[in-house]
């Protein structure tokens, strides 16, 4: 009896996690899209009469040293942060999965070469690597997506390769080969759909990390630079003011970052729980 309750409990718990995480992200995304409706100021619009004005009045969350509206920047930054994080992870998943699929299924020298490259990538701490790649590629939204994708793709390649190596030994792969399917056909129709389970769990978690990486790069001046609206850049810009007691320039973007990463983490954890529960039953 107890065991049954635990199973049912695990399932409803994972549901709560998934729904909460998804709800947070949906709210943030909607706010980002509706930014022009929610704020009367543009993200890079300068109110020369009010630099470092406190919250309230004409500026809901005050202004920063340049006289730009914090609330408005906060909303527009969500577009960039969510957009870059999600598209970078999507790119990493596509590239990493493709490489892992080929390496795992074909094996041989291709596997050796690809996996040694992956080893090199993974030998560096992720953030240091991101710094190096960002410095190499230079600024710009597209370059940021590429940078963050590049540091995350090796993990997917390794993950998918491991899955593929066990899947290719299963009888249904032999069945497909003897049915006359081409290698691409076997990979696309049988191996790929069956090897994506762990990717589905890791990718949302990874979006949270990607967002932190982006904010970190911007904080250090290698990502988005002021006047571009990005949470990391906003924190960086406002950090001297916090010491002086003007908290409204840095704390709101920090909290926004926290809420988003939390949303992704809850979603990822929930998916993980659900996958585990399914494996147990």
């Amino acid at each position: 009896m107890a065991e049954v309750r635990v199973e049912a409990g695990a399932r409803s718990f994972s549901r709560v996690l998934i729904l909460t995480g998804a709800a947070i992200l949906v709210v943030v995304a909607l706010a980002a899209l509706a930014a022009p409706l929610l704020s009367s100021w543009g993200p890079e619009e300068i109110d020369a009469n009010a630099t470092l004005a406190g919250p309230g009045g004409a500026h809901l969350l005050g202004t920063d040293t340049n006289g730009m509206d914090v609330w408005s920047r906060l909303l527009y930054a969500a577009r960039l942060d969510l957009g870059v994080a999600v598209s970078a992870v999507a790119l990493a998943v596509v590239v990493g999965t493709a490489l892992g699929l080929l390496a795992g299924y074909l094996g041989g020298w291709l596997d050796d070469v690809l996996m040694r490259i992956v080893d090199i990538f993974q030998a560096f701490p992720t953030f240091i690597l991101a710094l190096a790649v960002a410095a190499l590629l230079g600024n710009g939204t597209v370059n940021l997506v590429i940078t963050i994708a590049a540091v995350n793709a090796p993990a997917y390649a390794r993950l998918v390769r491991a899955e593929v190596r066990s899947i290719r030994e299963l009888p249904f792969v032999d069945a497909s080969i003897t049915s006359g399917a081409s290698t691409v056909g076997v990979l696309w129709r049988h191996v790929l759909p069956n090897s994506l389970t762990p990717v589905r769990v890791i990718a949302p978690l990874n979006c949270g990390w990607a967002m932190l990486t982006l904010a970190g790069l911007s904080f250090l001046g290698l990502g988005v630079t002021v006047p571009g609206a990005e949470w990391g850049a906003m924190i960086s810009l406002g950090s001297p003011d916090v010491v002086a007691g003007r908290w409204w320039t840095s704390v709101p973007p920090g909290l926004a970052l926290l809420v988003c990463v939390l949303g992704f983490s809850l979603l990822g954890e929930g998916l993980q729980e659900r996958a585990d529960a399914r494996r147990r039953s």
Partner: peptide, 11 residues
């Protein structure tokens, strides 16, 4: 095949 279910792709 010997394993009838395993020889069919789960998805």
């Amino acid at each position: 095949f010997q394993d009838p279910v395993g020889s069919l792709s789960p998805r």
